[in-house]
Simulated assay, not measured.
Amino acid sequence: MKTQIGITETNRQAVTEALAKILADETVLYVKTKNAHWNIEGADFYEKHKFFETQFGQLDYMIDSVAERIRSIGHYAPATLGSYLSLTQLTEKNKYPNDSQGFIKELLADHESIIIVLREHIKPFADDYHDLGTSDFITGLMESHEKMAWFLRSHLKQ
């Protein structure tokens, strides 16, 4: 059945393409956070192991929400590792060692990168594509990333 939600197919397609890239970023960040959870080493292992577990749980919810937003506007969400790697702006490689400071710096940079992308889409989704729902949705997503980034950043304070 055709999707009739008051947004043109052209606009829904443009929003879907942007959301697919966001979904890819979220998924790559999720995997990198899982990597931190699994591979953390050091005297603060247990504390950070649990901390990263909390963060990847939040990201799992966010991934599902982005994919469901794509579906709710009438399109299919990409769902392969290959598609995510071709769509993401993030790199899956870590630049830092497997200690808490290294993982936190890497994950923080990725959250901040996603925050910038989300912020840049808020007005175009509303103004150019007439999709206030997705504009509101990514505003909330951005706020979640800002809070997660704050938690990461707080671990870097000396």
Rank of each mutant, 00 (worst) to 15 (best):
E53M: 07
E53L: 01
T54P: 10
T54C: 12
Q55E: 14
Q55I: 08
F56W: 05
F56P: 02
F56N: 04
F56K: 00
F56C: 01
F56Y: 07
Q58N: 11
L59G: 02
L59Y: 06
D60N: 08
D60S: 14
Y61T: 11
Y61V: 10
M62P: 00
M62I: 06
I63H: 00
I63R: 04
I63Q: 02
I63N: 01
I63D: 01
D64K: 03
S65H: 05
S65I: 06
A67I: 03
A67S: 02
E68L: 04
R69M: 07
R69I: 03
I70T: 05
I70V: 01
R71K: 05
R71S: 08
S72L: 07
I73Q: 05
I73E: 02
I73V: 08
H75Y: 05
H75G: 00
Y76T: 12
Y76H: 11
Y76G: 14
Y76P: 13
Y76Q: 15
P78G: 07
P78L: 05
T80I: 12
L81W: 04
G82R: 15
G82I: 15
G82T: 15
G82Y: 12
S83K: 11
S83L: 15
Y84L: 10
L85Y: 14
S86Q: 15
S86F: 15
L87M: 13
L87K: 13
L87Q: 12
L87P: 11
T88D: 08
T88G: 09
Q89K: 13
Q89V: 15
Q89E: 15
E92G: 14
K93H: 01
N94C: 06
N94G: 09
K95Y: 05
Y96I: 11
P97E: 05
P97M: 00
N98P: 08
N98M: 03
N98I: 00
D99P: 10
D99H: 08
D99F: 07
S100W: 02
S100R: 09
F103K: 01
I104G: 09
I104T: 13
I104Q: 12
E106G: 08
L107K: 01
L107R: 04
L108K: 09
A109T: 10
D110L: 04
H111A: 04
E112Q: 12
S113W: 01
I116Y: 13
V117N: 12
V117P: 09
L118N: 03
L118G: 09
R119I: 14
R119H: 13
